[in-house]
Amino acid sequence: MQGEQDNICIELRNLVKMFPGVTAVNHVNLKVKDREVFSLLGPSGCGKTTILRIIAGLETADEGEVLIGGQVVNEVPPYRRDCNLVFQNLALFPHMTIGQNIAYGLERKRVAKNEIKKRVNEMLEFMSLEAMKDRYPVQLSGGQQQRIALARSLVLKPSCCCWMNPWRHWTEN
């Protein structure tokens, strides 16, 4: 039982979120294990995005608990949570190059400059976007931008990565 609890990456207990005139999240319970790919499916406006935003700390829950790595994080600000979000509109910083976008989170965590350079290059290679390092987001296609948004989250090696609408910009290639 203890072993199973250790493998839980995200846990939501009786999560409730209300907006004026609507209950967006109504007593939701779920557990996501380490290395598990967990999908939230539902019609538009059913609260999927709200749940992800609560997990990331961008919204506060009205009731219930959010646990990441077994710790209750309701009071932990988003910039201290070991969880990253890939936004539906990607939210790449338009005034930064692709390299600077990927390095942004590592710089905030005060990772050494050499290490940042190495991890950014590795991530660009992993995404097959090495040639795009010095370009700006506006110069990339939708699919390429999505890969960069994912790279920007994964480069931080978070315990969990929440991805909003992952197939939105995906192409067959």
């Binding site: 990331a56 700390g57 961008l58 600000p77 988003p78 910039y79 201290r80 990253n84 979000l85 936004f87 939210a91 790449l92 910083f93 942004y104 989170g105 905030r108 965590k109 920007r152 989250s153 931080l156």
Partner: peptide, 8 residues
């Protein structure tokens, strides 16, 4: 929000 999410 993306900036805060990335640790800023």
């Amino acid at each position: 929000e993306a900036s805060v999410d990335l640790g800023a």
